[in-house]
Nucleic acid binder design. Structure first.
Length: 478
RNA sequence: CCGGGUGUGGCGCAGGUGGUAGCGCGCUUGACUGGGGGUCAAGAGGCCGCAGGUUCAAGUCCUGUCACUCGGACCA
């Protein structure tokens, strides 16, 4: 058995979680390193997950009236420079194009790190009247940010994402949009990824460059570190003013519209891995598992076994994403392999089962095995997939609760941070100085000011002792 | 960008004080097998990350460099 563990070559999670993560990404063949430093190749299995996420999210966006669009990849420097805070925020990680063919360009182009400026420049041309609003746009593209350290899915120099950009006639409407879209993300994480998230507002220190307010969903990983899993920004009319976007309102007054943007990325794949995985590898929520049921024939050389497996596959295709593993490997090898890749249900079928008209279903999340009549599969499997989906969410939520602490004094928060990883609920006065001090002394940053759970756990700031304004979730983050 | 670690067949690793490159797994061929990574037999596969240097002789010592990895700073 020792030997078999070595063959599996997955480091145990509790020994070194970060190492476990990078190992499993490679072993499960989700991604590979490219020859371009800091860039990642998303392999078919990982990309299939992304496609499932993409299609679910896109459906949610469209239901709310958003349309897809595609902007250029390059941003003229002059355009990027228009909004001061924005350019300062992104300058440190901008990548530049300076040549076109053999000719040095008059003006260099930034490879988009985000597309607010491009959208504004376009909005300026197409918005004239209140009748043109709102504009509800989204694009599925990749962006480039020259990160110093990279980690597959969590931080790479190029990543796939969607960025929604909307323009509204009133402040209220734009604010509502910002919060609605945050809620779409939160719902998506809960319902599809089985990841519970804390919705809240970022402090000014943590907000997006150029935004008036940034809202976030924060998830908690297996090791107690937080992961910012999606953001939604309210820009006010700051960008419109800077870019000269105007429209004639109902009173024929020239007015600057209000803007939002929101995005989530392939980082969500990392979130799924780090939220649900275990010592045997990935555990995928059924809704985003490329293969939901893997049929493993046993004694497949015997007459009728492969035929029966294929028959079941055809039947089950109507109710789930199913595949047969009829490769040459031994059944035991296949079991381990598909567990490592996180397939939610394994269906074992062999000669004995066929005789009895049954098969065995094995759950990835609990390792539980049940014997099921073949005639009942079409109803049992969808129900089981749903149960697994729910169980993963419940489990993750329970773990998050266990790893959420409360602190009221500086000593207490330092001690909690030193001993535990997780969210720490503590009051805050609103001063950036206290955020900096907590980073310095307790090694934590503010994750968000949650919408819910604004319990007044103390009257004074956990750091400076001045009157407290908000409850903040603090933590170590990826 | 700063600090630690690691680069040796496809993967995981071993190779004190320099002296003909090894092991496990995988792979190939065949046979037996098959309900948790099976067994036997016979094979194939390596400019030891890269570039210099020291030496009669470098995987091993020195210098440089690159890549990966962990942690920090910065960020989705």
């Amino acid at each position: 058995m020792e030997n078999k563990k070595m063959v599996r070559e997955i480091t145990a999670m509790d020994v070194d979680f970060a190492q476990w993560y990078t190992d499993i990404v490679k072993k499960a063949d989700l991604a590979a390193y490219s020859n371009v430093k800091g860039f990642m190749i998303i392999r078919p299995y990982g990309y299939a997950m992304w496609e499932l996420m993409q299609s679910a999210l896109d459906g949610m966006f469209k239901e709310l009236g958003h349309e897809n669009i595609c902007m250029p990849m390059l941003i003229p420097e002059s355009l990027l420079n228009i909004e001061k805070d924005h350019v300062e925020g992104f300058a440190p990680e901008a990548a530049w194009v300076t040549f076109g063919g053999s000719e040095k360009l008059e003006e260099r182009y930034c490879i988009r790190p985000t597309s607010e400026t491009l959208f504004c420049d376009h909005f300026k041309d197409i918005v004239h009247s209140w009748r043109d609003l709102p504009l509800l746009y989204n694009q599925w593209v990749s962006v480039v940010r020259w990160e110093k350290t990279t980690r597959p899915f969590l931080r790479t120099r190029e990543f796939l994402w969607q960025e929604g950009h909307t323009l509204h006639a009133t402040r209220e409407e734009a604010e509502t949009e910002t919060l609605n879209m945050l809620d779409v993300y939160a719902r998506f994480c809960r319902e599809y990824l089985a990841i519970p998230v804390v919705e809240g507002r970022k402090t000014d220190k943590e907000k997006f460059a150029g935004a008036e307010a940034t809202y976030t969903i924060e998830a908690l990983m297996h090791d107690g570190k937080a992961l910012q899993s999606g953001t939604s920004h309210f820009f006010g009319d700051g960008f419109s003013k800077a870019f000269g976007v105007t429209f004639a309102d109902k009173n024929n007054q020239l007015t600057h519209p209000f803007q939002t943007s929101w995005g989530c990325t392939t980082r969500l794949i990392g979130a799924v891995i780090m939220t649900h995985g275990d010592d045997n590898g990935l555990v995928l929520p059924p809704k985003v598992a490329p293969t939901q049921v893997m049929i493993v024939p046993v004694a497949q050389h015997k007459a009728g076994v492969l035929e029966k497996a294929a028959e079941l596959e055809t039947m089950l295709k109507k109710v789930c994403r199913v595949k047969v593993d009829n490769s040459d490997n031994s059944p035991g090898w296949k079991f381990a392999q598909h567990e490592m890749r996180g397939v939610p249900i394994r269906l074992e079928i062999g000669p004995r089962d066929i005789e009895n008209g049954v098969c065995i279903l094995s759950r990835r999340d609990t390792a539980e095995k049940i014997t099921v009549q073949l005639s009942e599969l079409e109803t049992v499997i969808p129900a089981l997939l749903q149960e697994i989906q729910q169980n993963l969410f419940d489990r993750a939520l329970a773990r998050r609760k266990e790893m959420t602490y409360t602190a009221t004094t500086l000593e207490e928060i330092k001690e909690t941070s030193a001993q535990k990883n997780g969210f720490i609920r503590a009051m805050w006065c609103g001063e950036e100085a206290c955020e900096l001090k907590l980073k310095e002394e307790a090694d934590i940053s503010s994750r968000c000011m949650p919408f819910e759970d604004q319990e007044r756990v103390a009257d004074t700031c956990v750091c400076c002792g001045k009157p407290a304004k908000k409850l903040v979730y603090w933590g170590k983050a990826y």
